[in-house]
Amino acid sequence: MNTPKQVALITGASAGIGATYADRLARRGYALVLVARDTARLEALAARLRETFDATIEIAPADLTKEEDLARIEQRLQSGDVTLLVNNAGMSLKGSVLENGPDALARIIALNVTAPTRLAAAAAKSFVQRGSGAIINLSSVLALAPEMFEGVYSGTKAYLLNLSQAMAAQLGPRGVHVQAVLPGATRTEIWEKAGRDVSEFPPGFLMEVDAMVDAALVGFDRRETVTIPPLPDEGQFLAMQQARLAMAPNLSRSEVPARYRS
């Protein structure tokens, strides 16, 4: 009896982190559904992966900030053959909330929050029915360090971390693995689009995208819920998690504590 082929749907697949996930998953034998706005880049990537790995590739050009495109990718996830969602598509802002208007703010929230939430929900419903599947959400280390960058981008990434941890707790017992990946600064086009010059970064600050994705996949294979590729000491994150969980019994109480009594 033949084992059904694993199928990964990757958003933001035309370049950078998404394209690297496509390469690594094709190497592992996955069939791929590649989602991005740039059709020409998707076609070029698909051609290379077919030639190199004899991979089965479907391209699905889409702008995930547009309702009709997002709905179409939701429907693709619900078709029943996808076994892995890589929620990678995202953007940053040029400047802070002081330099951006309503349209820019609405767009980053649509791409970084609304789209991955809806796609994760669509995938989760399909995976729970099957009793298996996995979701990888690309967050950022800025979810843990909001003071280091403008707060809208880091806020969207903190949301994805929160969503991932909640989904992991809820869906893990039902056969669905959820992983949040928190890259540090990684050499991708996001910096140029945000108006940043990567040559200004100090030595040792910027990770190459191949190394980042390979590390993230090690975490995925280990079934980690949160993977932080640049963090040398996992104990630091685990200690933070333990401190956070230790607060849980005291986060909702009927009486105001003494420190807030006048």
Rank of each mutant, 00 (worst) to 15 (best):
L138N: 13
G12C: 12
T11Q: 06
S252W: 08
N88H: 06
E67A: 13
L206G: 09
R50Q: 15
L9T: 02
F149K: 00
R27D: 15
S254G: 08
L84N: 07
N87D: 12
S199I: 03
M1R: 08
F220R: 01
R107K: 15
T188H: 09
L77I: 04
R41M: 12
E200F: 00
E74M: 09
A8W: 13
A115V: 03
A26W: 08
A104E: 15
L171P: 11
G235F: 05
A215W: 03
Y30Q: 04
P229W: 03
Q241M: 07
S154F: 03
L111Y: 01
D69N: 13
S126F: 10
I10L: 04
A168P: 03
A122R: 03
N250V: 01
G16N: 13
Q179G: 05
A258M: 09
P230W: 13
K66C: 03
R118H: 00
E192K: 11
A104H: 00
W191L: 05
Q6W: 09
T20N: 13
A31N: 07
R24E: 15
Q241E: 10
G133K: 10
T114H: 03
Q242V: 02
G12E: 14
S14K: 04
A36Y: 12
F220A: 00
Y30P: 06
P249Q: 07
A115H: 03
S79K: 12
L98H: 14
V97A: 13
A36V: 10
R222W: 01
A8C: 08
D63C: 03
V209L: 09
E192T: 13
P61H: 08
L77F: 11
A40F: 02
E51C: 05
Q170H: 12
M148R: 14
M240P: 01
Q241L: 14
Y159R: 03
K5I: 13
S199D: 15
L251D: 00
G184D: 04
A180R: 02
E43T: 14
N88V: 10
G29L: 00
A166N: 10
V198E: 14
F205S: 14
A216H: 06
L217T: 09
A120T: 05
V198T: 15
D103G: 01
L45N: 10
V86P: 14
G195F: 04
L138S: 01
P116F: 10
V218L: 04
G204W: 06
S154C: 12
I17E: 12
G18V: 09
V33N: 06
I57G: 08
P230L: 11
L85S: 06
L182N: 11
P183D: 08
R50N: 13
Y159Q: 02
